[in-house]
Amino acid sequence: MQRIAVIDYGMGNLRSVSKAVEFVAPGDEVLVTSDATLINEADRVICPGQGAASDCMQALYEHGLIEVTKAVANTRPFFGICMGLQVLLTRSDENGGVDCLGVFSGSVQRFATPLLEKSQARLKVPHMGWSEVTRYEAAQSAHPMWDGIDDGERFYFAHSYYCVPTDPMHVAATTQYGQSIAVALAKDSVFACQFHPEKSANAGLQLLTNFVRWNGTA
């Protein structure tokens, strides 16, 4: 039995994430916790979260979780989801700008409004619903996190800000929303996505299954 820690820094509903992980890993221990020691002792770590980036960084700071989050991201399988992806970038433009954890070099920006397709049709913001997720960087296309998931499978999104990583080698997948945007990043033992696997029906459960089996190498 392995121990999977879900980092609880007080931002948003973690029940969906923890229940989905329990569903795919019934034999494992799933721990929703803000205790740095327990997080550091876990075999693998999930960082979910929603809300504004500045609030999330502030909450991580107040819970004394900045250092442990960076440390576990480097040392064991680590899965960032939604805001748990965005805080991994260098900085976010949200709420006038905030420095983030810098696990991936790059920034988080807001969708333009009005947001237009190439056809000039207007797109709504937030980007809300099921979009096709397409493998991007060849080096990432055989990533073990994609096992059993079709290229182009749809996942559920709900966000107004998106990641702009500086190194294209880190981009594991993109989607089209006004332009091509990075929606999954991967590097060493870290995999992170903008969409919500815990809300993406079978495809999402497969991604979570892959995470609880992943040895942390691409």
Partner: peptide
């Protein structure tokens, strides 16, 4: 494991929080 919206009788932010904490998206 798909998004769940809950409405009806939501009066204040505390109601919103309780529903989200129960598992509403």
């Amino acid at each position: 494991f798909i998004p769940l919206t809950v409405g009806g009788g939501v009066r204040e932010v505390a109601d919103v929080r309780r529903l989200l904490n129960a598992g509403a998206d």
